[in-house]
Simulated assay, not measured.
Amino acid sequence: MKASYIIRNGRVMDPRTGLDRIQDLVICNNRIVDPQGEAVSCDHIIDATGCIVSPGLIDFHTHVFYEGSAIAIRPDFMIPQGTTSAVDAGTSGTANFESFYKTVVVPSTVRLKSFLTVYSGGQLDPKLCEDFNPALFNLERMERIVDKYRDNILGLKIRFSRGVVPDDKGMDYLKATVELADLLNARLGTALRVCVHTTNSPVSAGDLASCLRPGDIFCHCFQGSGNNLVLENGEIDSGVLQARKRGVLFDAANGKGNFGIETAKRALAKNFLPDIISSDLTNDKFNMPPYDKNLPTVLSKYLTLGLDLMTVLRTVTEVPAEIMGMAGQIGTLQPGAYADVVVLKEKNIPVLHKDWKNDTLQGNVLLVPQMTLCAGEIQFCQTDFWL
């Protein structure tokens, strides 16, 4: 067998298969392969001694409608951060989704899927607030867009915060969004999820979660503004626990203003772990400390908070791959999967993490990408790696 690359001597970690050992990873063309005892020749041997070899990271909550939204970044800028797949969290709406798809999704090296904001204009600018009044839903166009791009659109997005939805009508708006997803699913045979931005909600976390269906996304789950999922007595809101039992998914979706260190500490102390860890990257924080800078920095924060490495990797590989409908194709190193791979070094250096309240968390571990392969092609290599 002639291989394209062999990554040798690395600690290969794959949450989907439970693999965690020093071994070679063999790549042929755009796939990971198992030689099964066959002799392998290769002109490109990559020595990953002292490094972690992981499936390419999947950033499940980003904003990448570059040049279509004032908050967005170029998706391929995430490749040096080890991200090979991502989900845009509703930066576009029905009025501009096709522009987003044609100008960003199609030419992107990072594999992209999307949520569609139920407000037709999407998230255009921090100073332009969306209006989620159900009277403004463009059902006819939404049905056409979802049907045409059903392989890309994962679900509908609503921001559920004071100042974005009315305090007295917010729950009506949320319920209308869920009903809209149900209606489109019935008409089109789709399986649209609902993703809810929960920071500074006008209702309790439990009441909010009670509206969600199995597979829906409660994002910014560790936010520390207003009603959060940890009650004053330190217990997790019972409505949140019931939602998790029903199959509602909880995404950390950190962001700059959507994460509270104390909320996270108290939730983790009750063993309430996020199903997904994502960055919520926008251009006001991209690569800028001490908030969520990039996905590896966010993952390092959760290592500091006490999660083990395999658990952390699962939230950015196996779990989001399943939600994206690509289990076994991405988010894994099993033979036959796309060769989306990141080589990481776990460095012991001081790292300061902050939240929107300026509460701090002092860490001493940082995951640093050394190389990123997207579908078997090296798209990033750290200057001092593979010399």
Rank of each mutant, 00 (worst) to 15 (best):
A3F: 05
A3M: 13
A3C: 10
G10V: 09
P15I: 08
R16I: 11
R16W: 10
L25W: 11
I27L: 06
R31A: 14
I32E: 10
P35H: 04
Q36I: 11
E38F: 05
I46F: 02
G50S: 09
I52M: 14
S54R: 01
P55T: 09
G56C: 10
L57P: 07
D59G: 03
F60V: 01
F60L: 00
H61Y: 03
V64S: 04
E67R: 11
I71Q: 05
I79E: 08
I79S: 03
Q81E: 15
G82C: 11
A89T: 06
S92V: 08
T94Y: 10
A95E: 14
E98C: 06
F100Y: 15
T103D: 10
V105L: 01
R111A: 02
L112Y: 00
L112S: 03
Y119K: 02
G121T: 00
D125R: 10
P126H: 12
K127F: 14
R141S: 12
D147E: 14
L154V: 02
G155V: 01
L156I: 01
L156W: 04
F160G: 04
S161W: 02
R162K: 15
R162T: 14
R162H: 13
V165H: 06
V165E: 02
V165W: 04
P166I: 05
D167W: 05
K169P: 00
L180R: 05
L180E: 10
L180C: 13
A186K: 12
R187K: 15
G189F: 14
G189V: 12
R193M: 09
V194W: 02
V194P: 01
V194K: 04
C195T: 02
T198G: 10
T199M: 08
S204Q: 11
A209N: 10
L212Y: 06
R213E: 10
P214T: 12
P214Y: 11
I217V: 14
C219M: 14
F222R: 08
S225M: 15
L229A: 13
E232M: 09
N233E: 12
N233F: 06
V240L: 04
V240R: 03
V240K: 05
K245D: 15
K245M: 10
N254C: 15
N254A: 00
G255S: 06
G257M: 07
N258K: 09
N258D: 14
G260F: 04
I261P: 08
N271A: 13
L273Y: 15
L273S: 00
D275Q: 08
L281Y: 01
D284T: 13
F286E: 07
F286W: 15
P289A: 06
P289C: 00
Y291R: 08
K293G: 00
L295W: 03
V298Q: 06
L299S: 01
Y302I: 09
L305C: 11
V316W: 08
L333N: 03
P335L: 01
P335W: 11
G336V: 08
A337I: 04
V342S: 12
V343T: 07
L344S: 13
L344F: 15
K345T: 14
E346T: 12
I349Q: 10
D359M: 12
T360W: 07
T360M: 12
N364M: 07
V365P: 04
L366D: 12
L367A: 09
L367C: 07
P369S: 11
T372S: 14
T372K: 05
L373R: 04
L373Y: 00
C374A: 13
D384I: 01
